[in-house]
């Protein structure tokens, strides 16, 4: 399973390096979202401003939207030229395919989050403190988001309405992750990262649960896609 995961992750990342879709479309989209929120909620004037207070939530909404694009892209390459059939015929362990695709998307998102956090700090005028907690929340929340995204990505892969189906299925499922990550970031940026430990545990629980469901369910879902 891990061998297959490594193989699929390498293939997906190689495709992204060649096509530069993540760099040329997903990342600019996320930055535009951050900028648009900045324009809509007004110029930041210190820690009391609406924009500053909403910064954690806006960061995670931008990550959520970028996740949808990244997952859609991950499955678009499988839909082209019957590659999904090729994936089924390959004999790869479906659990390995799930983990590989999730790892590739997670890797791209974590890099994006690094730059997005810097942009949020700059545009929304929020000093990033408790970096270890912020990083831990990024890792656990991203794993949960990506696991759920890849699971629903394969469901929507064969559907005609896949562009709208994925967000429709995905957003309600990951609402707890959005809530937990936002609360944790809020506590960390407020200088009380210890108060967010419960949220970090929640994010970890969702990450483990969605990964476990994905490992078990991805194979049957790939067959139906």
């Amino acid at each position: 399973m891990l061998r297959d995961a490594w193989l699929v992750a390498g293939k997906d990342l190689r495709i992204e390096v060649r096509s530069k879709v993540a760099l040329g479309q997903v990342a600019p989209f996320a930055f535009v979202v951050v900028l648009l929120f900045g324009l809509a909620l007004g110029p930041a004037v210190g820690r009391g401003s609406v924009l500053s207070a909403a910064a954690p939530g806006l960061f995670w909404v931008a990550v959520l939207l970028a996740t949808v694009l990244a997952v859609q892209r991950s499955f678009a390459v499988e839909a082209a030229d019957g590659a999904a059939d090729g994936l089924r015929l390959s004999g790869l362990d479906p659990a390995g395919v799930f983990l590989g695709k999730a790892a590739a998307v997670a890797g791209q998102l974590l890099v994006l989050e690094l730059f997005l956090a810097a942009a949020v700090s700059l545009v929304y005028d929020r000093h990033l403190s408790a970096l270890v907690v912020l990083a831990a929340s990024c890792v656990t929340a991203t794993i949960g988001l990506v696991a759920a995204g890849v699971l629903y990505g394969v469901v929507s892969m064969g559907a005609r309405q896949r562009e709208t189906l994925l967000p429709l299925l995905f957003f309600p499922l990951v609402a707890p992750i959005l809530l937990g990550a936002t609360k944790l970031w809020g506590e960390a940026l407020a200088g009380a990262p210890g108060r967010g430990s419960g949220w970090l545990e929640l994010l970890g629980a969702f990450a483990v649960a969605y990964c476990a469901i994905g490992v078990v369910a991805f194979g049957p879902l790939l067959e139906e896609a």
């Binding site: 293939k11 190689r14 019957g82 059939d85 090729g86 015929l89």
Partner: peptide, 30 residues
């Protein structure tokens, strides 16, 4: 599936990968 080779209407290829990378991926997967 691992014992058959299907050449279908679709090529089961990844557009953004090179010729060699496509073949190597399929061979390693199988």
């Amino acid at each position: 599936r691992r014992e058959v080779g299907l050449l279908g209407h679709s090529g089961f290829l990844y557009d953004d990968l090179s010729v060699e990378r496509n073949v190597r991926f399929a061979v390693r997967a199988a």
